[in-house]
Amino acid sequence: MLSLVVTATVDEFPGRAIGGIEQDWYVDVSASKPVRQRDVDILEEDFRDGPEWLRAYKGSAWIVDMSANVPRVYLNTTAVEGLVDLMNGAAGSVEERVVRDLAAGQIAQDAWTAMFHSAISDLDVDEDGTPLIPGGWRESVLRAMLPDVFPDRQLTDALYELERQRTDGAGWSEIQTRIQYAAGRRSQLTRKLTTAVRSAHQRGK
């Protein structure tokens, strides 16, 4: 476990803690290569016979749940037969790899969209009413997507404009299109669709 505390001399008193990280880092010293910790939990559940709250979504292959501290993607083990096994696989035929990539891309786009909306749903503001960038995974999501939502604005200006449009409703419908575009870029869905179409054309020849 790795913790980080920043200290400085304050009012001639050395060693005062002035900052640090909110969560400890866990380092696997035996791993052969570094693995990035996921900001999203992916859980497998039977929506039909599993937790009661999931039964209303039994017809969905997956849902994104933003009610916990960490975003969760629930994969339905019974909606599409074989999908979860396919998602957990690494090899397989060309067709299986194409389907796996497409499903992963669509799940990622849904997750990015849900996380973005959750990140901007309850922003804190400073004394001037300027929205503040949140911490944790919400900050990561906003820093990743805002440049695509407002490519001509700096991060803080983009967040201010986003909150203004969300609050008064002016231009908010257009923003939805930009959010969808940004989520698509993060999930690389267009590239995966291109690969799938090329594969289909090659198989059809």
Score class of each variant (00 low, 15 high):
residue 145 M to R: 01
residue 46 D to V: 02
residue 94 V to C: 05
residue 19 G to C: 08
residue 159 L to T: 11
residue 200 A to E: 04
residue 151 P to I: 03
residue 30 S to F: 14
residue 74 Y to G: 01
residue 104 A to Y: 11
residue 28 D to V: 12
residue 177 T to P: 04
residue 205 K to Q: 14
residue 21 I to H: 15
residue 37 Q to D: 02
residue 100 R to Y: 07
residue 184 G to Y: 01
residue 14 P to E: 12
residue 155 L to Y: 06
residue 105 G to I: 06
residue 43 L to P: 06
residue 141 V to K: 08
residue 16 R to A: 11
residue 168 D to G: 00
residue 200 A to M: 11
residue 64 V to T: 05
residue 74 Y to K: 08
residue 52 E to G: 03
residue 90 A to N: 07
residue 6 V to R: 13
residue 57 Y to V: 03
residue 154 Q to H: 05
residue 34 P to Y: 02
residue 152 D to N: 12
residue 146 L to D: 13
residue 105 G to V: 04
residue 141 V to D: 08
residue 144 A to L: 13
residue 122 D to G: 00
residue 132 L to N: 13
residue 93 S to D: 00
residue 6 V to G: 01
residue 78 T to G: 01
residue 166 R to N: 10
residue 118 S to W: 10
residue 165 Q to V: 02
residue 52 E to Q: 07
residue 11 D to M: 01
residue 158 A to R: 09
residue 68 A to P: 09
residue 78 T to K: 15
residue 134 P to L: 10
residue 11 D to L: 15
residue 189 L to M: 11
residue 23 Q to P: 02
residue 38 R to D: 14
residue 116 F to W: 03
residue 139 E to M: 13
residue 156 T to E: 12
residue 203 R to M: 06
residue 83 L to K: 09
residue 201 H to V: 15
residue 30 S to P: 07
residue 3 S to Y: 11
residue 134 P to M: 05
residue 169 G to P: 11
residue 107 I to H: 09
residue 193 L to P: 08
residue 84 V to W: 03
residue 4 L to R: 10
residue 35 V to P: 02
residue 87 M to V: 11
residue 194 T to N: 13
residue 50 G to R: 03
residue 163 E to V: 08
residue 4 L to Y: 13
residue 92 G to R: 12
residue 78 T to C: 00
residue 55 R to K: 14
residue 23 Q to C: 07
residue 45 E to A: 15
residue 108 A to Q: 01
residue 20 G to L: 05
residue 86 L to Y: 07
residue 110 D to K: 01
residue 153 R to D: 12
residue 122 D to A: 14
residue 158 A to G: 15
residue 7 T to L: 09
residue 79 A to V: 09
residue 24 D to P: 06
residue 83 L to A: 11
residue 205 K to G: 14
residue 200 A to G: 02
residue 110 D to G: 08
residue 68 A to S: 13
residue 174 E to I: 05
residue 68 A to F: 14
residue 106 Q to F: 13
residue 129 G to A: 00
residue 189 L to D: 00
residue 24 D to L: 13
residue 107 I to R: 12
residue 19 G to V: 04
residue 148 D to A: 14
residue 192 K to S: 00
residue 155 L to R: 11
residue 101 D to F: 06
residue 112 W to S: 08
residue 180 Q to K: 13
residue 153 R to L: 11
residue 101 D to S: 15
residue 78 T to F: 02
residue 59 G to S: 13
residue 155 L to N: 04
residue 88 N to M: 02
residue 167 T to E: 07
residue 140 S to C: 04
residue 67 S to L: 03
residue 75 L to E: 02
residue 68 A to Y: 10
residue 177 T to D: 11
residue 134 P to D: 08
residue 143 R to K: 14
residue 79 A to N: 04
residue 157 D to P: 07
residue 102 L to W: 09
residue 177 T to I: 05
residue 18 I to V: 15
residue 89 G to R: 03
residue 191 R to Y: 08
residue 65 D to N: 10
residue 201 H to D: 13
residue 97 R to I: 04
residue 12 E to C: 07
residue 98 V to H: 05
residue 63 I to Q: 10
residue 168 D to E: 10
residue 135 G to V: 01
residue 9 T to F: 06
